[in-house]
Each structure stands twice: as structure tokens, then as C-alpha cells.
């Protein structure tokens, strides 16, 4: 995030860090115990799912603490229109974890917005571990920034003919103070407060550079994908859990028998 400030523990408990080969590459948000919402472009075709790690309950990427939980990915569901009508259109991914998140004051889910949410006069914030300068500097601390929403027609005027904005996209940036999302913030949530509850209205998706005030950050509009998100979370069962148990296979029984006999002989 450019122009962001340090975020305190417990302020954004749904924030997720997505790592690949041990390095932070994207953000995400917790929807439920098994599901994380992120951006589709964080999951390139060439990348292996086994190489991803997901961290929750963390603000400093170098300091996991007693509230930090680590997860492996069971499956990723990419929106069917990803890159279909736009180079970064349909930029939504549902990530199912192999095991369940344990909720606490430091780890909580975000709400989805109602489909008819009126976006005027909302206080909206974004968070992330993305680059903190256009030169590519990175930081380990989670940053936060309040970003005004920019009407889509106005955002389209700013981007001009070079980048077309789909109806499923929304824009936000603080042009006066140069606050904007940057590389590494992708997948992180844009959340707005309504009636004492935070709702996720956007997913960090793309933009032209980070420090050019005339090019706001572009987000996937969560309201546009609501039915797709709800459908998958309802129909997909939790992943099978591997429970520790005593095996009754003949081979293991034999091993146990031989071990007991060995102990008896020693005695």
C-alpha cells in the first residue's frame, strides 16, 4: 500500500497472507472456517497448489505469534469469466483450506455485502502487505489506508481508452494524498463499515502503476460475484480430515506383535 499506516492487531482479523515458495505474494480475506476469498490472478496456471501457504492472525510477516495459524490449500476455484472479457476480468478466487480456521479475537471472518448495497457515503478501507513505494520497497507490517470510492464512469475517464473497466469492477484511491494499492496487495479486501459491521465490497485486482494519482486502484466488485460465492460455499463439502488412529492393517498388527515379543524377550 502506498501512503498506508501500520495496522494494529485485531483491527482487521479477516486479513490473510498468501505465500508462494515462502514469500508473500497476495492477500486474501476469511469468509468462513474453510474458505478464503482472494484474486484469481494470484493463482497462475504454472504455480503448484502445494507450494502455497496461507497465514491468518498475523500482522508482521516476519513474526508469527501465538495467534498465527498456518494452512495448506485443498482447492482453488477460479471464477469462470477470469480473463474472458478483460485481461484481468473475473478476478475472483475461492480458496478452500485443508483444515479449519480456529476463530479468536485475532482471527474472524468478514461479511459479504447485500446485493443492493448503496455505496455512497461509506467509510472504506483497504489493507495489505504490498509494495510501499513505486520503487518496489516492501515492508513486513500490515498497512491500512482509507480509500474514497471513485465512481466507475469517472474512473473510466481517468483510464481513458487504454484500459476498459467492466461493470464488475470498482475504483478507489485517495488522489490528494496519493494513497493507493500496489503490487502484493492483490487479493486483499476493500471493506466498508455499515451499521457497526464491516462488509467486503472489493478485492484488490489491478491498476496502472501505484503512484500515479490519475490511475486509481481497481477492485473486483464483490457484490457482482455474490451468487457465485454463496453457491460454491453452500454446495462444496468440507475437505476430508485425516484423523490419527490406530491402524488395524495386518502389517501394522504384525509390527506391534513383533515389538511386544521383542520387549518380552528382553525382559
Amino acid at each position: 500500500l502506498l501512503g498506508g499506516e501500520f495496522a494494529r492487531d485485531r483491527k482487521w482479523p479477516w486479513q490473510v497472507s498468501l505465500h508462494y515458495s515462502g514469500f508473500h505474494i497476495c492477500g486474501g480475506s476469511i469468509l468462513s472456517a474453510y474458505w478464503v476469498l482472494s484474486a484469481a490472478h494470484c493463482f497462475d496456471r504454472g504455480k503448484k497448489l502445494e507450494t502455497y501457504d496461507i497465514y491468518v492472525g498475523i500482522t508482521n510477516l516476519e513474526k508469527a505469534n501465538r495467534h498465527t495459524q498456518w494452512f495448506e490449500i485443498y482447492q482453488v476455484i477460479i471464477h469462470p469469466t477470469f480473463q474472458m472479457y478483460h485481461p484481468i476480468g473475473g478476478d475472483v478466487a475461492l480458496v478452500q483450506l485443508k483444515s479449519a480456521i480456529v476463530f479468536s479475537d485475532f482471527v474472524l471472518p468478514i461479511c459479504l455485502p447485500p446485493s443492493d448495497l448503496y455505496l455512497i457515503n461509506l467509510s472504506c478501507w483497504t489493507t495489505g502487505w504490498g509494495m510501499i513505494s513505486p520503487q518496489g520497497e516492501t515492508g513486513n507490517e500490515l498497512l491500512e489506508a482509507q480509500l474514497p470510492l471513485i465512481p466507475r464512469f469517472q474512473c473510466q475517464l481517468l483510464y481513458g481508452l487504454s484500459s476498459y473497466l467492466l461493470p464488475e469492477m470498482l475504483c478507489a484511491a485517495d488522489i490528494k494524498t496519493m494513497k493507493n494499492v500496489c503490487e502484493g496487495d492483490s487479493g486483499s479486501p476493500l471493506v466498508c463499515k455499515q451499521n457497526q459491521t464491516w462488509l467486503q465490497i472489493g478485492i484488490v485486482s489491478w491498476g496502472r502503476g501505484c503512484a500515479q494519482p490519475l490511475y486509481p486502484g481497481v477492485f473486483a466488485n464483490v457484490s457482482y460475484f455474490l451468487s457465485w460465492i454463496r453457491y460454491h460455499l453452500q454446495i462444496i463439502p468440507n475437505p476430508p480430515q485425516i484423523l490419527p488412529s490406530l491402524s488395524s492393517s495386518p502389517k501394522n498388527t504384525l509390527i506391534i506383535f513383533v515389538t511386544i515379543m521383542g520387549h518380552l524377550l528382553v525382559l
Partner: peptide, 27 residues
């Protein structure tokens, strides 16, 4: 385990935990 009050959020997908309500609220 969270001490949050459940079942208050129509838009929650998380079942028994209230969504969007951090313990630490910004001013």
C-alpha cells in the same frame, strides 16, 4: 475460541461466528 455472539449477521457465511465485527474497532 471466539467470544463473539453468533447468528446476528444475515450476510455471514461462517455459521456460528459473527462476521465483520473485530474486537478492536478503529476510531
Amino acid at each position: 475460541v471466539s467470544r463473539r455472539h453468533p447468528k446476528s449477521q444475515a450476510n455471514s457465511l461462517s455459521g456460528d461466528v459473527a462476521c465483520g465485527q473485530p474486537v478492536l474497532q478503529g476510531k
